[in-house]
Design a protein around this nucleic acid. Structure first.
Lengths: 187, 187
DNA sequence: AAAATCATGTAATTTGTTACATGATTAG
DNA sequence: CTAATCATGTAACAAATTACATGATTTT
């Protein structure tokens, strides 16, 4: 998909190295996009070839040098135009839900554990997002226009996460019940 | 990812052709998995080679023959074991949220239209899921074990959809406000 | 007459993942 | 001394998308 544009978007406010981008990606759009560092490095090369990004090497003390990328004017223009093009959505692929389709008295215990694990993962993510929200978006009305958009994306992540937690609780009840009755009937 | 296991899961209760599978996929796990017909046909060939699926040709009147696939005993066993393996999640990739990161007074009008379109898409999906829920899952307590799992997956889809609608309304308010003030300030 | 639905496929290309590679520094 | 973090990359492979191909039937 449009990894190129996701990368450029991450570079609107700050110039970043590939390594920094790879981490930022997880932290800031992790819940609706993921990209590995290998992918990011390759995309950065392509974008630099296209002159949508420029690069400069930055020496650091006690750390290896890094190559920092920034948007060029052409890059900003391309990004601004991209907003008007068609929007693609790739649905998440979640094996846990496929597993639920295979629920049985035998595997209910295992599935219950998996739901609990996922609940925790989502809790950790929510905790982070809430911290960001409180620190940077306490007064959304006063934000500059672009940051209002970022704020809305954050709200989408928080809403999704909270909804998922509620679902986990409901699922856990049903699966636990199966687990218990299964212990009686199964062998 | 585990498209193979998603396909096998879709074949637990009914034997289906590639064409039917491609449609069922969208209808039943559409919100957490997508696969094109090309992908499905190729995967079906692989699964038949592995002897996890068997195939038989079915003649139809007034329609081309179809090749119907069913789970073999080996296939069912492989699927049952797969449940205990590690679970992968691939986060959704949503360009609309990337676009929101690029919100400006200029593009607010366009983004508002896109949010409205998406809201409608989700509404249509929810309408379908609610219909399925009422028809087949009115009394979840009385369902056979496996169907309780399917029901939970359905609830996940409905919950996610409803949360998304609420988000759309909030987003629409913010974006509309930007649009209006933008008309004043922009030239 | 055109478009949509039914039905299955191949080929080329793009994307994404896994494995491998290097090398310095810092924390436990 | 081991693991983790910082930093960037290549190569091989797997997965997914796009484009192309065929052909009958049904609906508009």
């Amino acid at each position: 998909m449009a990894l190129a544009h996701a990368i450029m978007t991450a570079l609107i406010d700050d110039d970043l190295s590939g390594y920094e981008l790879a981490k930022d990606f997880e932290a800031s759009f992790g819940f609706f996009w993921h990209a590995s560092h290998q992918q990011i490095y390759q995309e950065l090369h392509k974008l630099a070839d296209k002159r949508w990004l420029n690069k400069r090497e930055v020496s650091q003390s006690g750390k290896p040098n890094k190559i920092v990328y920034g948007l060029t004017r052409a890059g900003r223009k391309a990004l601004a135009e991209w907003v008007y093009g068609e929007t693609r959505v790739q649905a998440a692929k979640d094996e846990l839900l496929i597993k639920l389709y295979n629920l049985s008295a035998e595997n209910a215990g295992h599935i219950s554990v998996e739901i609990a694990e996922r609940r925790q993962q989502v809790m950790r993510m929510l905790y982070l997002y809430e911290k960001i929200r409180i620190r940077h978006y306490a007064e959304p009305d006063t934000l500059p226009v672009r940051h209002k958009g970022v704020y809305l994306a954050l709200l989408a992540g928080i809403g999704q996460g909270e909804q998922f937690l509620a679902w986990c609780d409901e699922a856990q009840e049903v699966v636990s019940a199966v687990e218990k009755t299964g212990a009686d009937t199964a062998g």
